[in-house]
Design a protein around this nucleic acid. Structure first.
Lengths: 278, 278
DNA sequence: CTCGACCCTCCCGCCGGGGGAGGGTCGAGA
DNA sequence: TCTCGACCCTCCCCCGGCGGGAGGGTCGAG
């Protein structure tokens, strides 16, 4: 008497490997219909092929096994569709990143552009309206958009006092996450929602302007850092960005102008007492 | 006296993590300018930032470290461009697979289509012109195109005797690679180039027709397999495909018709002596 | 000299499997 | 009923490209 399809037969008809089926069993993703308690042989029913197909497709889309499991666990087709379209959005975002990297790589391999114009600037303390948070790198762009939109809504053009900016801890780039601050200088700062009134401390900056899309902004950061080192200065503290012309001003990324500032200190000198060099 | 940037400083200006830099050193990808022989401290020169940027971009494109190394090792910009565009082609191919999987998943989640029409058929032996090879799954589509093009070129329409077909070992799907055969029935078979004259043995097939694009062809395979099992038959041997209407007939994938045949045998019966059940 | 921040090496974990060892089970044929 | 080869089982190690953390050495400013 046959108890069902053996794992090998099931592998053949489902186009999955035996190993993979065992792993899906172990992960609770696709339990065999019966498991012989004596021999531990796995036996599958033909109607489980359909489930195997769905898993196969989801895995082709790199949906993690845990997510596949969650997806299969719910019967609510609405929730299912939500999970799937969520993943498709992530795929889209990744595709955008890939496109950006391709473009940036192309530009990177061109013969070097004009020399970087850098100046040292002492920025006095300023009081601004700001939103701060610890953010993971993959969430950075979404968080930025949300925060900047909130700032823009809270302070209409008449109340603004210069272009918006941001400060980003270096760990945000070198590690997986870090503190982000976006701010707007405004005539009458006031807290509401996530917005706080923040006094930005005075700082000595090495400043340059990055033209165009932000896709290769870290190339300019690298060149700026290289300049700083060549001046026998040390870099220190979060990077400063000022959006002279940004996505909120024109959709043409070629027109954007972003001022990049890196806090510096004289080597062998005083790294601004009261702050640690991060 | 400073010997250069410490790894932490270099991490900050290059936007790579300290761990990652150590790994790139270990992999021979980005050697520090000097390594203190006593303390093993790594020191970098500012001009290495540019290399770090390139590596960063390539890694964003999932170029394997080994390939990045090869890329950096050559100065020939031509060869460089070749390696890069090769990788970009691979990214494109992957994107196509993703698109196919998305579409197929969508169709898979629709309420079940019409019942599958399956028939059992005894196929007599045939002598055909064929190309055979052991192929890895990721190369399957390219190999297929090449082989079919060669067959088409060798036997113009007047000499043909029915639609082309293929036979594919099940390991091709369940494992990483397997034997592939594409063939054409022709009036006067003859060997030339990769083409051999092959006698296909007679076989008992469970046959159905898969309409439309090949993106979800394995769903139909699953349903066919399910039917076979329900008839108390076993599946055996390589799958057979006949391209009744295929890409060489019309560009509209919706019109394609592919006959799928799975060799079957009666359970408890004789699995065709002389062959092992794969 | 001290002390904290930095650096070193080494080992383990993650994911989604593949490779292979070593041993038990199944079922068709004689 | 026995045999024998194909199949199945579990267990452990490997891959790539990092991250986490232990345990210990080094640097440099006060």
């Amino acid at each position: 008497m046959r108890k069902g399809l053996t794992i090998g037969e099931f592998a053949t008809v489902s186009h999955l490997s035996v190993r993979t089926l065992r792993r899906y069993h172990e992960a609770g993703l696709l339990e065999p219909a019966t498991v012989d308690p004596h021999t531990s042989y796995r036996y599958y029913r033909p109607d489980q092929i359909a489930t195997a197909q769905v898993i196969h497709r989801l895995r082709e889309l790199d949906v993690p096994l845990a997510e596949v499991k969650a997806l299969l666990a719910t019967d609510d087709p609405q929730e299912r569709a939500g999970l799937i379209s969520g993943h498709l959005r992530r795929l889209e975002a990744e595709l955008d990143r890939t496109r950006a990297a391709v473009g940036s790589l192309r530009r990177l391999l061109q013969p070097e552009a004009a020399a970087l114009e850098v100046q040292l600037r002492s920025v006095p303390a300023r009081t601004v309206a700001a939103i701060r948070d610890r953010v993971r790198r993959e969430d950075a762009l979404v968080w930025f958009d949300g925060a900047m939109t909130e700032l823009d809504a809270a302070f209409p053009p008449a109340g603004r006092d210069g272009p918006p900016g941001g400060q980003y801890a270096n760990e945000l780039f070198t590690e997986g996450a870090g503190a982000m601050t976006v701010f707007r200088p405004v005539r009458h700062p006031s807290a509401r929602g996530r917005i706080e009134v923040v006094e930005l401390p005075p700082v000595e900056l090495a400043v340059t302007v990055h033209p165009g899309s932000h896709d290769d902004i870290d190339v300019t950061y690298g060149r700026l850092g290289s300049w700083v080192v060549a001046q026998a200065l040390g870099v220190d503290g979060p990077v400063h960005e000022t959006y002279l012309v940004g996505p909120r001003d024109t959709a043409d990324a070629g027109q954007w102008r972003t001022e990049l500032g890196w806090p510096v200190f004289r080597l062998g000198g005083d790294p601004r007492p009261g702050e640690t060099r991060s």
